[in-house]
Design a protein around this nucleic acid. Sequence first.
DNA 1: TTAGGGTTAG
Length: 634
Amino acid sequence: MLLSFVTNKSIHRLCQLSFSSSLFLTNQALHLASEAQSSFSHTQSIPTPSPVTSNCTDYQYYLSFLQLCVTQKALKAGKRLHARLLLSGLGFNTALATKLVNLYCTCNCLPHAHSLFDKISKRNVFLWNILIRAYAWNGPHETAILLYYQMLEHGIGPDNFTFPFVLKACSALSDIGTGREIHKQVIHTRWCSDVYVGAGLIDMYSKCGCVNEACQVFNKILDRDVVLWNSMIAAYSQNGYPRDALILFRDMVYNKVQPTIATLVTVISALAEAAALPRGREIHGFALRYGFGAVDKFKTALLDMYAKSGRVQVARKLFDQLLDRELASWNAMICGYGMHGHAHEAILLFDIMRKKGKIPPNHITFVGVLSACNHGGLMKEGEHFFHLMVNEYSIEPTLQHYTCLINLLGHFQRLGEAYGLIQNMPMKPDSGVWGALLNGCKVHRNIELGELALQKLIELEPTDAGNYVLLSNIYAQSGKWREAARVRKQMKKRGLKKVIASSWIEIKGITHAFLSGDTSHPFLKDIYKELERLEGFMKENGYVPDTNPVYHDVGDDEKFNMVRTHSERLAIAYGIISTPPGTRLLVTKNLRVCEDCHVAIKLISRIVEREIVVRDVNRYHCFVNGDCSCGDYW
DNA sequence: TTAGGGTTAG
């Protein structure tokens, strides 16, 4: 080795060389390093040993070596050096120990990191920060918060690194109390206008569902960077404010802040939730101009949006274009198929994913596959995939997986089994699980079990009027009008109101919302005229109104009037009269599509020769030429 | 002298 000109810099370089030569064999790295070290420690050009270490050059070498261990996450090599340091008495030098704590934290060896941390007597803010960071990232998150308060007790002041780390722990725990307390502390420091701290606060408030407070933090920081904008856009997006997310994005562009891929992915995901395809196309074009169009992460977000806007084939095209498919890409496509009831396509894609074997499916993949089975009415397959998930992939079923299975069992009239499954679940069933059972009871008119499910639902959600409505519907379907009325009375007595059904359609960038029996739209006359025209054709095609979905004890004529002005029909009629022939329509409804409207929309799709997509609260219905993609099963 | 905030699938 060339040791004649060993200086501090060359020691570092030598360390890098010896290290990088054994990147894949980290155990050897230490061997090479110690060889290098023992060689150059005998040369004359080494500086005089410092009082802290037996040999200053050794010490600097070790520091450099450990830093490389941290950047390369070379745990084994670091551990061996740690052992050597202990033997040589250098182990508890603060600088070296700090590097070791950092290494253990980086490699997620928290017990090692913490016990070494405890042995260090002089702990600076950096040392506290890296341990808090490790717990904030890997959990237990409570420990991160505990350490933060211990740090304060030790008289160490938090800095612009500490706050984002500890706030991350609050976000993970949705601990708004601690989050607010830390925010108060931030205000008393010079970090209150720091963009990192600000982003941490916005994220914490967002994850705790406090968008207004997130917005206040955002507004107070005037010197904003792109991540701060992204954080606030994400806060809107994740809390169900897609419009605000889009407005803020436009504001950001107006303020000449260059968007990043994270910005576009966030905005696209907000629009996906709102099924706002035209706005999504606008962002798509924007991304192409900025050169993000070919980025796989962006394409994955885009395919999710197209799938959620009812364009499954476009989504599949995007999926096929991906060069590097991440787990999220597979999941987005499988779930996309699932929500549209394309069960066979979902299963086919899942099989391809498994055969490729590169990326193992996770619990979300199985939510997609199971919901596909559920929406496609594939009982046997649903059971098969549930067992596959547990036995082959060792994935613990979550409430969502159970809900899919209970839905399936309910639809196949295996209500007793569904109830048995609920009783044997390892976790407390939530409202989704009981709701799935209740839905099955409604379809198969099982009053006894339906009542039981409703009792549980009322315990869990005492103010949700939907539960009362469903039970009342079960009674009504069996002609038990008295009981139905009793439930409605009970609901009224408790001051609960049914969620009013509404549907909306976006035409030329404007959202038109309709309530059931709505009379407020400016084109009301034309809408009703169109409905009448369609009804004429529908009757010619054998349409007989099914008034069962109207659960009130009223006369048949009145019932028919109630069905024919259901919000989805008004939205569709408006869509037909305000767009050119052949235009595809996308209608979103806040509740489930009723049976009669389902029959009617199938016929309308044939009469007007248009594809009509209805996204209801559970799934998508794609009506083409008299048929629906759900196969009349939903 | 070391470290950091925002993003896709349910």
